[in-house]
Amino acid sequence: MAGEEPIISGMAGRYASALFDLAQSSGAVDAVGADLARFEALVAESADLARLVRSPVFSSEEQTKAIIAVLERAGIGGLAANFLKLAAQNRRLFAVHDMIRAYKGLVARARGETSAEVVVAQPLSDSHLATLKDALRSATGKDVALDVKVDPGLIGGLTVKIGSRMIDASLKTKLQSIKIAMKEVG
């Protein structure tokens, strides 16, 4: 289908596909997803961990040692821990965010869901999230998993990206359109 996301490819896609196959065969898809989400949250919270993950300066041994310590401290084990250790050993930690995103995409596809990236100016209440999910479900005909990010720079409104389609209903974009229109008139 034209609106679907492309088949996951590249290095991150290969790692994610292998992890998904292992998780599916061992019945641990949700557990692996939860552990990966917890790891992503740790990276987002710690500048030092983010630097370790992204920097090519650290050797494979240094990254692996540090990742093992972080995983033990966070209580992340099983397939997700082995996956993250393997990524560190193979010097692929820099791509772990893309691998996790690809894994989430594979899980969603297997469940007949689609995912939407939503950027809002302020955090949404539970009722607003439910309303947005319902609207997207009726528009796509599928259950929609939301990946919500907050960007105060939008001023108001939101942007929604599903596959290759993007809806920009942000106040920032509307103001820029007015500004351009005023320049053309003047």
Rank of each mutant, 00 (worst) to 15 (best):
A41V: 02
L52R: 02
A169H: 03
L42H: 08
V150D: 12
K85D: 04
D126K: 10
A69R: 03
V43A: 14
T159H: 05
R91T: 10
S17E: 12
A81R: 13
N90I: 05
L136P: 09
A181T: 03
M166L: 15
V43N: 13
I67M: 11
F58E: 09
K142W: 03
L19S: 05
V120H: 00
A116T: 04
L93S: 08
I100M: 07
D147V: 00
N82W: 09
R111Q: 14
K183W: 00
V57M: 02
I7G: 00
A110W: 02
E45N: 09
A69K: 05
F94I: 12
G27R: 09
Q122G: 06
L93T: 07
R51F: 12
S170V: 12
H128N: 13
I8K: 00
R101H: 13
S170H: 01
V144T: 06
S127P: 04
A66K: 01
V53S: 03
R73Q: 15
G157D: 15
S25Q: 15
T140N: 02
G141I: 02
K172N: 15
R51I: 09
A47F: 06
A181I: 00
L93R: 01
Y103V: 12
S55V: 02
E72F: 11
A69H: 01
K172S: 14
K179S: 13
F58M: 03
G153T: 10
V148E: 11
N90Y: 01
A74G: 12
S127G: 12
H97S: 14
G156N: 14
V120W: 02
A47R: 07
V57Y: 00
S9A: 11
S170D: 10
S46Q: 08
S164K: 01
V185G: 00
G77F: 06
A81F: 02
F94Q: 14
L154P: 13
Q24V: 07
Y15R: 08
G141W: 03
R109T: 04
L19K: 01
G3Y: 12
A121D: 15
A23P: 07
A44M: 08
I155Y: 00
R101I: 07
L136T: 05
K161C: 11
A88I: 03
E61Q: 06
F20N: 06
D151N: 05
M182I: 14
S164G: 05
S25I: 03
L36D: 10
G163S: 10
Q176Y: 07
E5R: 03
L42C: 11
L71M: 07
Q122Y: 07
L19E: 06
A37G: 12
L93Q: 09
E5K: 01
G186Y: 03
R109L: 08
D143G: 11
L71G: 10
A108P: 05
S17Q: 13
S127T: 15
R165W: 04
A37D: 15
G156Q: 12
I180F: 04
A116C: 05
F94Y: 04
R92K: 14
L42M: 14
V32H: 11
V119K: 00
A44R: 13
G3V: 05
D98N: 06
I7R: 02
A130T: 13
T114D: 08
D126Y: 00
L79Y: 11
G10H: 10
T64P: 01
R73V: 08
L36E: 07
M1T: 10
A121Q: 11
E5C: 01
A169Q: 02
E113N: 04
G141Q: 08
